[in-house]
């Protein structure tokens, strides 16, 4: 009798544990549905087609229009600027740490990059608005150009620096996971150190580097505080990075911080933008995970 009681409490315990792990699924489902339902409500009020292709975003008016194209364009612009900084610098840093730095130096550099990764984004946002943006305005003036105080360039630059450690950390892990026998083989053929890195090590680690870059891209698209503090509110369809632009996340915050009724299209528009954000980042994460799996199976690595 005693034994079966023990057995039952055992099963109960496992059941409780299983339920706890269901929370993570519930969270994803919760995010998806809380966004999806409100977004559907929004699209019952406003045209989905215009949302995707329209160029005028004018909430809070009698005849408010919700064309998100300029918002997507702004997000795209700032993301591109950020990645132009972050991908080369992130990969370069990773190469330095994994291939050139002595173990002692690496032990110093890696924590320093982690400091950069640990800085809250609100801090980056303040720095972008207080220091970088005015510097860009002055610099543009020197060149005879006109820059806005909330230019896409300022946000993009700071966001790029924020993403460097995201890319460098994972890339460094992946580069170091490339077996030394590969490096030796290339060096013994009379290749220089840098040729070995460029032609052998980096191509081998490429799936991991792609994964890291996609993760950086996803981070850039979803980043909120930097753009809320340093980017504009004005939906602006332009190619000039010195102009102010707005992003998906900025408009989500703007729509939800104001005092609108919860079921007004103004508020609901935040969820439709959120849906776009969710779908895009989900796809990016999926590709990123698939890439890293490819790398792991290539070298039969279980950690990372």
């Amino acid at each position: 009798m005693k034994k079966s009681k023990k057995f039952n409490s055992e099963r109960l315990m496992v059941l409780v544990l299983a339920m706890a792990s269901a929370i993570s699924i519930l969270t994803t489902v919760g995010i998806l549905f809380s966004i999806l339902f409100q977004a559907i409500e929004f699209f019952q009020l406003k045209s989905f087609w215009y949302f995707i292709t329209g160029t005028e975003w004018s909430p809070g008016q009698m005849d408010s229009r919700f064309g998100a194209l300029p918002i997507f364009a702004g997000t795209f612009m700032i993301t591109i600027i950020a990645l132009t900084i972050a991908i080369p610098a992130g990969i370069g840093s990773a190469i330095y740490m994994s291939e050139y730095a002595s173990p002692r130096w690496r032990n110093i550099l890696k924590p320093l990059l982690e400091v950069l990764a640990g800085i809250p984004t609100v801090v980056y946002g303040f720095f972008a608005a207080l220091t970088i943006a005015p510097a860009i305005v002055s610099f543009a003036e020197l060149l005879g150009l006109d820059a806005a105080y909330n230019s896409a360039l300022a946000c993009g630059l700071v966001m790029g620096v924020m993403i460097i450690p995201v890319i460098s950390s994972l890339s460094d892990d992946v580069l170091r996971a490339v077996p030394d026998s590969q490096r030796n083989a290339s060096l013994a053929l009379g290749m220089t150190h840098s040729e070995t890195i460029r032609h052998i090590v980096v191509p081998s680690a490429m799936p991991g580097i792609i994964s890291a870059s996609l993760l950086g891209l996803s981070k850039a698209i979803g980043e909120t505080m930097i753009v809320v503090m340093a980017a504009g509110l004005r939906p602006n369809l332009s190619w000039n990075p010195l102009e102010d632009m707005t992003t998906v996340t900025v408009r989500i915050v703007d729509a939800l911080v104001g005092d609108h009724a919860f079921d007004s299209p103004d508020t609901l528009s935040a969820f439709s933008l959120g849906l776009v954000l969710f779908v895009i980042t989900l796809i990016l994460n999926m590709i990123s995970l698939a890439q890293i799996r490819k790398f792991k199976t290539r070298y039969k690595i279980s950690s990372l």
Binding site: P179, S181, Q182, N184, A185, S186, A188, I200, P203, S204, R298
Partner: peptide
Amino acid sequence: MVFQQPNPFP
């Protein structure tokens, strides 16, 4: 040089 473990490039 030829090494102990065969190490062809991928």
